[in-house]
Nucleic acid binder design. Structure first.
Lengths: 152, 152
DNA sequence: GCGAAATGCTTGACTCGTCAACTATCGACA
DNA sequence: TGTCGATAGTTGACGAGTCAAGCATTTCGC
């Protein structure tokens, strides 16, 4: 009944919700969790602010306030980069790592349950179809960017 | 590299964005567009406020303000239901219908382009996998509701 | 037919996404 | 060295999602 696009968004929202329940229980939001995971992956060197934004899907301005809230909760630390004072280096704190460690299992389990209606083979199929979709979407966006740049 | 859940959310966000560009150009947001489509589908009888919320994915409180903005733009009208004065009946206006009519084509085209990386057969597969996922997710949620109700 | 519970909706407070505009810093080049 | 353009990030403003609380109105049990 739904178009593929609508089906995709509906399904995504349901899963988002299922996962968010688990994360909210620890006092942070899904997006804050995403930032923390990115920072954990970056290790002790940390990451400049906009690098984090790029790895999320987000447009840049939102990331500042997201980090503000995480810093207020003492889950990340920020400091001006000494070699390039425009940049702000962000690092996950010990508290942040502890919080993440407690969430790894429950989040994986929530995802597993959310997708438990599919067989392993179907999961592979799904991933493949989604990857293909994203690739062609990225290509389409890139084309559009070229065109607008030419026009300017 | 991504888990299926992450791939799903990333893909959904990209498509959401591609579609939103087209809709924003007409001065309304994706969610406002969704409400208008639901109301157009409901016809002249309109729908009570919470019925609209149910057909979106949304939690109830948001719908009031969404309708506030649509009413301010004169795209919907609202009036208290005379037989049950708790309800507020919402109807799409002539302006709303006109705006939707101008968006039908471009939105369908944007969705088509967004998914143009998949063959028709793959699209069917994708829809089937997504439907299956939602069904099992709904079942899981229903189970959880039962449990919490028993516990209370 | 009256009080209590249920229903339908609204409001307040907070998080997040996004656009436009702004500040600070860096780099290149004259 | 001083200026100009790019880069990194921040701020303001608004739409939206979500929780908890609140206000009518209606319905149900007695």
């Amino acid at each position: 009944m739904d178009t593929p696009a609508v089906a995709l968004m509906r399904t995504s929202d349901l899963i988002r919700r299922a996962v968010a329940v688990v994360i909210d229980a620890q006092g942070i939001t899904l997006q804050q969790y995403n930032v923390l995971r990115i920072l954990r992956g970056a290790g002790a060197d940390g990451l400049p602010t906009l690098e984090i934004a790029e790895r999320m899907i987000e447009q840049t301005p939102g990331i500042t306030r997201l980090l503000d809230r995480l810093e207020a909760k003492k889950l990340v630390r920020r400091e001006r980069c000494p070699t390039d004072r425009r940049q702000v280096t962000c690092r996950i704190s010990g508290d942040g790592l502890k919080l993440l460690a407690g969430l790894d299992g429950p989040v994986a389990e929530a995802e597993r349950v959310a997708l438990s209606g599919l067989t392993p083979h179907q999961l592979e199929q799904l991933i493949a179809l989604l990857d293909r979709t994203r690739n062609s979407l990225h290509a389409a966006l890139a084309r559009r960017v070229e065109i607008t740049q030419e026009a300017s």
